[in-house]
Amino acid sequence: MLRYVLRRLVQALIVLWGAVTVSFAVLQLTPGDPVRIMLGGAGDAAAAASPEQVAALRAELGLDLPLWQQYLDFLGRVLTGDLGTAYSTGQPVTAEIAQALPVTVELGVAAIATSVVAALVFALLGVLLPGAGLRSLFQSVTVLGVAMPSFWVAIVALQLFSFRLGWFPAFGSDGVVAVVLPALAMAVLTAGTLAQVLTRGLKDALTEPYADTARAKGLSEVRVVLGHALRNASLPVFTMVGMMVGGVLGGAAIVETIFGRQGVGQLFVEAVRAHDFPLIQALIILTGGVFVLVTLAVDLLYPLIDPRVVAPYRSGRTGGVDLTARTEVA
């Protein structure tokens, strides 16, 4: 068990280091001189800056040093939590992110909680309802969810619930009410996907011999599903939820832009528009860091759901199923 945890921790650190390196490389590979951008974009102001000014700033930023030294400096600064100052606002990058992060976290938590609950409801009804017609209705509804892109749901929801009915605000990130529509827009797609994976898992589990063993014990179908099939069927869903949590930062960009929420997603869009390299770098590291943390959490929680996962690392017994390969995909 300890070996398992250590291995995962080491892997997480390597991925994180990779994210930092990529964010450093992005700056090197992007066309355009950061110094000129800082001195006022590509326009006349930049041209007006004297060569002395440019050289001074370059020295101040350490851009005149050899590449490897810049890289090591960058690594050092990241390790001490100093991610620099945003060009566009002059604020420390960390402050910018600290301001935007809660808005996105609120949205992400709401969206993922909604999709998990919706997926559970639809998948359970899809296998438990009496009547094959009703069951297949619930199963096919989930396809609709997968077929609707979030920007489309967002626009339709805006039209209906904000402009026509006026139930929810169309813009902004103030209060709980403002999060309803964006969360809905993000949740529809993920709920559909999760429900499909879960339904498939439940149906497979219910044809397994152990489901018959459970039925032969005198358990009702509801108990067979909840007590025996659900936990087995939830393994792939659990992995997917982890990936979705990691993807929230990126996925939020569209929805946050449509609803005018001042979250990380929109910050990312603005940073790219303004060629604000320190901010872009910080956001790449942040996204990578979230992914690493979530994957690590999923990997460490996985054995609690499926005891076979750590089996290959235990001594003695044969017949352990190596499911670690599956989790590593996440």
Binding site: P209, T213, R215, A216, G218
Partner: peptide, 22 residues
């Protein structure tokens, strides 16, 4: 449900798949 498991019981074919792995 009152009969299965109590008065009638099953020993299934495949011992590897007949038990819930979790």
């Amino acid at each position: 449900r009152k009969i299965r498991g109590r008065r009638l019981a099953l020993i299934p074919q495949d011992p590897l798949a007949g038990l819930n792995p979790v």
